[in-house]
Design a protein around this nucleic acid. Sequence first.
DNA 1: CTGAAAGCGCTTACAG
DNA 2: CTGAAAGCGCTTACAG
Lengths: 341, 341
Amino acid sequence: MKISLAKPVSIKDIARMAGVTHSTVSRALRNSPLVNRETVERIQRIALESGYRTSAAARSLVTRRSDTIGVVVTNIADPFVAGVVGGIEEAADEHGLSVFLANSNAEPEREVRVARKFEERRVDGIIVTASRVGAQYVPLLEHMQVPIVLLNNQHPSQFAHSVMIANVQASLDATRHLIALGHRRIAYLGDRYGYQSDTERLSGYRQALEEGGLPFDQQLVAHGDGKPEGAETAIAELLALLQPPTAVFCYNDMSALGAMRQIRNHGLRIPTDISIVGFDDLYISQYLNPPLTTIRQPMRQMGRMAMETLLKIFAGAESGNDIKVPGELIVRQSTAPPKES
Amino acid sequence: MKISLAKPVSIKDIARMAGVTHSTVSRALRNSPLVNRETVERIQRIALESGYRTSAAARSLVTRRSDTIGVVVTNIADPFVAGVVGGIEEAADEHGLSVFLANSNAEPEREVRVARKFEERRVDGIIVTASRVGAQYVPLLEHMQVPIVLLNNQHPSQFAHSVMIANVQASLDATRHLIALGHRRIAYLGDRYGYQSDTERLSGYRQALEEGGLPFDQQLVAHGDGKPEGAETAIAELLALLQPPTAVFCYNDMSALGAMRQIRNHGLRIPTDISIVGFDDLYISQYLNPPLTTIRQPMRQMGRMAMETLLKIFAGAESGNDIKVPGELIVRQSTAPPKES
DNA sequence: CTGAAAGCGCTTACAG
DNA sequence: CTGAAAGCGCTTACAG
């Protein structure tokens, strides 16, 4: 059968049933104190019984607010991103906002399409959770003159704010932990698409080496793509070194996942032969074999913070909209003292 | 500084600039053949230069289509769900639709809120990806008289269609694989919130046992919550049996993850002491130690199919909207012949 | 090919 | 307390 889409009931319909004008219905529905209490109740009862539902489109046309925010991600299937989006949605829901989800896939044409779509939808704000925000992306969104919150990325702009993990401090902690265990040949396995985050994590790593009196060796730095695949190639280079590292600090847990598999394929044991530390503390990381030592990023919380930053800006806040969140070192079983120590 | 939100340019503004009425602008913008070619070009140029962007709200008010779909998930942080949503978004984008994401968290009040929100937004269709669709949820959405596609769940209704993995066949394959390896004490570790999927997977498991001449033993069935935590408790029961299983077929990979950790904690080795098979083939499953034998669900593809089902219905299709997708057994290293065989 | 008019479903000053 | 009017930004019959 062909489905007949019944036209939804409007305030005019209710007005007819209640014997008042639609103006009164509109007021009654919003609980205006201007309307007679009994009338309000009668109208609300009718609305309920008739299954009335305000048209968000009609309302936003006049209020000039869509009560909607746009969330752009590079890849929703990335567990870090999914965690953040969960937090965003939760906070949005609490404040009666709806979220548009768009996956840019890091493809320039899609990014343009997303920006256009958000403009047409007149989103009230935007959150970008892209591990790889291109420098050209924000200007695209800026056109909208709507507040933008970047997650783990910053961009100097009137409209762009940020929620960032404290990369340098966290990486310092991670690397110090390896040094404290006695490691002297520690590698950094980065993400060549990690932009600012990669730079900062590398920098924290270098600071820790310096602090520990260890030389920085460019050979011990390799870059993957932030995913297991790329990490496998990158760690292979490291393992092929004349003096391979005894510990590797990875850009993120997904990279650690790939590194660990490759290490096993080389017949080496973790942490006996080589220690691994990740970054993110994905939900699954505690279930790995061995459980992964890593830096915890409070993903859900960071998503909430991004949403709340937007809300503060809506409410008129003008500054203090760059938040830095501390990471936390979680020591598990993928790290141990080096064999030869 | 307080951000001044410039009012976006409307077709009226363009009309003024072009010296025509807004009707003509509206037509020109939609490339109507009714409008003089040169006028169309002039108007489009002005629109482009002025940064004009159609108001989706205004348009949908008259067209009665929002070009929007609502996606409800129980938990976006679940990797299976995130994969499906990725596919949905991808297909939606290709067809110029926007997606509203809502997380029900399996909380009844949130479900009610989500349904209401989708109604107000006048979504053109809904996709539900909940591992645990309550029987009461669909009626909530049905009120909207909008097509609904359920993922891995079915519901008899004029409006509800479905995309399902072929649970029985897949579970049959998974269990047969274990039987073929020589296992005779095979357990099923289910998801007590898995509803239809759990029932069907259990049923495929039982069919395989029967087919293989193995007795069904209720003791070898334990139920977790579809997550690692619940699986840990469930498998502990199984391991405590006088005659523990030599192989376990798990409801999903997340359960397998928990089971594997618990097994290790009991000092047992996988697959030497016990074989494990999962269900889903999450992205990470190939990176586990040992890599997980599992049933592949084409998550992304299933998301696309759900979206495409909606599109077909929009286009007037009236039947054939219950799709069954085959799973695929992926044999990796978490399964092997039993020790004592 | 173009314009004037009506209307989509709301909100909100302005009168009374 | 209630109504009549205007308007948000579009689309689309109806005229010309």
